[in-house]
Amino acid sequence: MSAMIANLRDWLPELLVAAGDTLEMTVCAFILAAAAGLVLALMRLARARALSVAAHWYIEIVRGAPALTLLFLLYFGLPGIGVTLQAFVAAVLALGLNGAAYLAEVYRAGIEAIDKGQREAAQAIGMTRPQLMRWIVLPQSVRIILPSMGNYSVALLKDTSIASLISAPELMLRARDLTSEYYMPMEIFLLVGAMYFAMAFPLSWGVRRMELRMQRR
């Protein structure tokens, strides 16, 4: 028992730092996914056919292949054409570009869920397209989009664990290092699992609360 406490004293500081890296990676990838996803969604809804087709295929291809292939292509494949990325950067790019395809569909569903009559009514009273987006469509879409974005952030937080497979510094990599040092995989991975739970559960609880509040209105 005291040996276990001594081990915990060794592991916890390192794992907490690594959990900080996991959160940092999650936030960076989330921002990239939210921004790139918005661009994709606008392209998808654009009147220019080339833009909308390009966005459509980006979304289909990226959502059809595992995030891990994109991650490995960026990290192991790009050096072949002279672009070498840091593991952390490659992980943020891969997770962010992967998430963008997902969030683009979320945005689109949110915008398309608003009844067409509202748009027509806004145009009838003389609003321009940007105006009706700003004042009529988006305020309502946000209620549909936000819970999905919240759920995505929970999934992303867990998905950052695959960044350990390209040795990007985060929680899972630190755990693997510790297991090769101490050879106590059960204890270490259970502890790490508990740490992910401590981050992901409050987040998903918060998202559910938000979902309920948005439905009530």
Binding site: K158, S161, S164, M172, V192, G193, Y196, A200, S204
Partner: peptide, 8 residues
């Protein structure tokens, strides 16, 4: 659902 599948 709160723990990555890789950890599991």
């Amino acid at each position: 659902r709160s723990v990555p599948v890789l950890t599991q």
